[in-house]
Amino acid sequence: MSPQIRLLDAGDAALTVEFGDAIDPGLLAAVNALDAAVERLARAGGLPGLIEAVPTFRSLTLLYDPLLTCRADVEAALAPLLAGAGETQAASGRHWRLPVCYGGEAGPDLEATATAIGATADEVVALHAGTEYRVYMLGFMPGFPFMGDLPERLRLPRRAEPRLRVAPGSVAIATGLSAIYPWESPGGWHLLGRCPVRLFDPAAAEPSLLAAGDCVRFEPVSAAEYARLAAAVAAGELPPAHWRPEAAAGGGR
């Protein structure tokens, strides 16, 4: 096991495998690789008592039933997986192209963001939509994707005064990350636009549309096209895969 990897207790029924202390694509690959290996081992019966594995930017937490297993048994099962952690490659995630209506009512912070970085609104849109983002993790609320990495020029601190209400589908930036709000909620990120695609469906077999390791590109659309797509989504006429043109070889959850 790499000396950088730490095994930490997270209460009496969880174990966290920590790979580092930064937001970094290399750490994300290590987390996703271990997550995939743990899933394969659990399916083969090698991790009895495992309830769930939760990936983050830099760690993987394993939740287990203490009546069926213990930390020592979980750690022993992980040992061979961690022994080759440095050489393991994560499976490629799926590639998504999601529509976004930038600016106006959909993106109330677009103009202010442009002013803050000394650019035009069109330049901000080109920078944001011209970048491929990797989903680092889901958190904050169900289906909320933390995606990196923003171009250096777009990296701004969070708003000094968070909003009490951010509309669902809002596409936002803060620090080095971009995100999409699946639900209405408070929020302190800069809102550039809005995406009509539903990111979380509790009735679906896989409720979250995106998963850690997926890649996302944004496609600018007009306000009229956004309204058409939003109406189709509300009517159940637009399948979730409509904006996923392809999955990378070996991809999938």
Results as ranks from 00 to 15, higher is better:
residue 108 P to E: 09
residue 122 D to H: 11
residue 229 L to M: 15
residue 30 A to L: 11
residue 184 E to R: 14
residue 93 G to E: 05
residue 26 G to T: 07
residue 164 L to C: 03
residue 133 Y to R: 13
residue 65 D to I: 07
residue 166 V to P: 05
residue 206 E to M: 12
residue 33 A to S: 12
residue 39 E to A: 11
residue 162 P to S: 14
residue 215 C to D: 01
residue 156 L to Y: 06
residue 16 T to M: 14
residue 28 L to A: 08
residue 110 L to K: 03
residue 11 G to W: 15
residue 144 F to R: 05
residue 72 A to S: 12
residue 227 A to G: 07
residue 15 L to F: 07
residue 140 F to N: 11
residue 179 A to G: 13
residue 4 Q to V: 08
residue 48 P to W: 11
residue 199 L to G: 02
residue 216 V to S: 08
residue 234 A to E: 07
residue 204 A to G: 04
residue 31 V to T: 05
residue 53 A to C: 10
residue 188 G to H: 07
residue 32 N to I: 03
residue 66 P to I: 08
residue 38 V to D: 03
residue 196 P to T: 00
residue 237 E to T: 00
residue 112 A to E: 14
residue 108 P to A: 11
residue 239 P to L: 02
residue 234 A to G: 10
residue 243 W to S: 01
residue 115 T to W: 14
residue 45 G to H: 13
residue 121 A to S: 14
residue 49 G to I: 02
residue 149 D to A: 15
residue 130 G to K: 11
residue 54 V to R: 13
residue 247 A to V: 04
residue 61 T to G: 13
residue 139 G to Y: 12
residue 107 G to T: 03
residue 155 R to K: 09
residue 18 E to V: 14
residue 228 R to T: 09
residue 194 R to D: 00
residue 171 V to I: 02
residue 113 T to Y: 07
residue 212 A to P: 00
residue 122 D to M: 11
residue 242 H to D: 05
residue 103 G to A: 05
residue 153 R to G: 09
residue 222 S to G: 07
residue 227 A to W: 05
residue 107 G to P: 03
residue 184 E to C: 12
residue 234 A to H: 11
residue 101 C to H: 10
residue 19 F to K: 06
residue 118 G to E: 03
residue 199 L to S: 03
residue 109 D to R: 15
residue 4 Q to F: 15
residue 91 A to N: 13
residue 241 A to Q: 13
residue 205 A to Q: 10
residue 139 G to L: 10
residue 72 A to H: 12
residue 40 R to T: 04
residue 62 L to C: 07
residue 13 A to S: 11
residue 248 A to F: 11
residue 156 L to N: 04
residue 205 A to V: 03
residue 101 C to A: 15
residue 86 G to S: 07
residue 219 E to C: 11
residue 175 T to I: 08
residue 68 L to V: 01
residue 26 G to C: 10
residue 191 L to Y: 10
residue 62 L to Y: 06
residue 151 P to T: 10
residue 117 I to N: 06
residue 244 R to C: 06
residue 164 L to Y: 08
residue 6 R to W: 09
residue 149 D to Q: 15
residue 215 C to K: 12
residue 117 I to K: 06
residue 214 D to W: 05
residue 220 P to I: 00
residue 137 M to K: 06
residue 7 L to K: 06
residue 200 F to S: 02
residue 59 S to V: 00
residue 187 G to A: 09
residue 153 R to F: 10
residue 138 L to K: 09
residue 137 M to S: 05
residue 208 S to I: 04
residue 190 H to T: 01
residue 82 L to V: 04
residue 230 A to E: 07
residue 141 M to I: 01
residue 9 D to H: 14
residue 197 V to I: 08
residue 77 A to S: 04
residue 175 T to C: 11
residue 179 A to Y: 02
residue 83 A to H: 13
residue 232 A to L: 12
residue 100 V to W: 05
residue 120 T to A: 13
residue 58 R to G: 02
residue 33 A to P: 07
residue 105 E to H: 10
residue 63 L to S: 08
residue 78 L to H: 04
residue 199 L to P: 00
residue 216 V to L: 14
residue 119 A to K: 14
residue 33 A to E: 02
residue 230 A to R: 15
residue 10 A to Q: 06
residue 118 G to M: 03
residue 235 A to G: 09
residue 159 R to W: 07
residue 23 I to L: 15
residue 103 G to C: 04
residue 119 A to W: 13
residue 50 L to R: 12
residue 215 C to P: 00
residue 75 E to K: 15
residue 90 A to G: 02
residue 6 R to S: 08
residue 79 A to F: 13
residue 38 V to H: 01
residue 87 E to I: 01
residue 10 A to S: 10
residue 162 P to I: 08
residue 44 A to R: 13
residue 239 P to F: 05
residue 43 R to E: 12
